[in-house]
């Protein structure tokens, strides 16, 4: 990746020029990264912005609060699925740069999950926290959803680079909780319906495939032995 961005052959003969070219190169990479992260944020938040516009133009249908709850929940699941697709895709296609956007996607999923919970708690139940507490305690599908949000909260709070440094290897272990979140979210979605609808089952199946691909990868890696250690190392440990 770096080689592809190296300065032209001509400049390498003059070390000063090469250094400054590398400097320019580095700055360009940095700028590109910043722009790409911003672009991803813009993309991630577009559904939220569209929903806000729909809210103020009265385009949320007959039961707006239900629409808001369902829509934010749906996007949380979609973005969570995208987050969990990063690693398998990277391994499959060798696109190591993808991992750079994984934490950001995870944060996106957390944001939508928080909106989903917030709309339910504050708009739907109308700030009556005793009802929320009762729902969480007594209604399993809400208990499951709330647990998923708590885990996402823990992951979001430790998603900074500083946390990664501080926690070291434990960070990887901690962030494997996202697999548990995927399971809980699948259950929450299926359980929230009156009948077995298609979409919740499709998402549950997708999560199963994404998690299984990791199991298969680590199993093959173990079987292959030390001779074929992963060739690519990345700044973030695989998840």
């Amino acid at each position: 990746m770096r080689a592809a961005r190296a300065a032209p052959e001509l400049d390498r003969s003059r070390t000063g020029a090469a250094a400054s070219a590398r400097g320019r190169d580095k700055a360009a990479v940095k700028r590109w990264r910043r722009v790409s992260h911003l672009a991803l944020w813009a993309l991630t938040l577009t559904p939220a912005v569209v929903t806000v516009v729909h809210t103020f133009t009265g385009n949320l249908g007959v039961n707006p609060i239900e629409t808001l709850t369902h829509r934010t929940g749906w996007w949380a699941i979609v973005i969570l699925a995208l987050t969990l697709t990063v690693t398998p895709l990277r391994r499959l296609l060798g696109w190591n740069w993808l991992v750079r956007y994984r934490r950001q996607l995870g944060l996106g999923a957390f944001i939508y999950a928080s909106l989903h919970l917030g709309i339910y708690a504050f708009l739907d139940l109308g700030l009556d926290l005793s009802i929320l507490a009762e729902d969480i305690a007594e209604r399993p599908f809400i208990t499951v959803g709330f647990t998923a949000w708590l885990l996402l909260l823990a992951l979001a709070l430790t998603s900074t680079t500083a946390s990664m440094r501080r926690l070291g290897k434990r960070w990887t272990t901690l962030h494997r909780l996202v697999y548990v979140v995927a399971g809980l979210v699948s259950l929450h979605y299926i359980w929230g319906q009156k009948v077995l609808e298609t979409q919740p089952i499709v998402f549950a199946a997708l999560f199963a495939v994404l998690l299984m691909s990791r199991a298969v990868y680590s199993w093959r890696k173990r079987r292959a032995g030390p001779r074929t250690l992963p060739r690519r190392t990345t700044t973030e440990p695989p998840s």
Binding site: L125, G126, E134, D135, R139, P140
Partner: peptide, 17 residues
């Protein structure tokens, strides 16, 4: 209902339960 409360309802067109 085992999965949700029946104590309140949302009247379609109203904001508060």
């Amino acid at each position: 209902h085992p999965r949700w409360s029946q104590a309140t309802e949302r009247r379609i067109g109203e904001f508060r339960r």
